[in-house]
Amino acid sequence: MPDRLDLELELAEELCPVAAPHELWERIRNAAGDSDCPVPVRPIAIRRPEPSWSVLPIAAIVTIMVAAASLWMVTRGQGRGIDLQQLAMQELRTPAPSEFDSNDPAQVNDWMRRQAGIELNIPEHTSACITGARVIRRAGERIAAVTYRVGEQNATLLVARGGQSAHTGHGRAQWQAHGQSYAVATSNLERSDAACLLCHTAL
């Protein structure tokens, strides 16, 4: 077995820093054209080809197929393909670093509204202690993640726009309200309802 020193030397050599490719900045500038990024964006000229009558039937068929598939997925409640409940458990078990460190509900609400377009409405006098917030990007969706503590218990709340049908289970919960999907996960399965104290004054 390689001893620790050899391994560390090998790792330092193999994982050494590298220079970023020159085209990275152009990629970012071009991508910023579709976001609210403040980077000055060079307008991209898009040449639109003249429509050809021969492709119209094919386009119509494809459009109908896509619409049918979308409708089928929505009716099955799998529009995003994201299991919010499972993701909440994953966030709780292996929390990623927060992007916004504040224990002020108003600031967290405001930050999340601006970053993810999601309304949290955590009350000003919550009995939970917020420890951080971040935005998870999955499958093109922005999901709000708020980590907090209730007593000695760690908890995570995830909120996404739209979503699946309501469901509750032991030690974790998922529900829908006001056009948003919610899921909470808690570290204490015996007192999982304590996670609700983020937004409720009593259980």
Partner: peptide, 18 residues
């Protein structure tokens, strides 16, 4: 890596006021 770097900088630029 290019995708991740791009995501990171877009996120950075859009949230730097925070």
């Amino acid at each position: 890596a290019m995708d991740i770097a791009q995501d990171t900088f877009l996120k950075l630029f859009s949230s730097i006021r925070d």
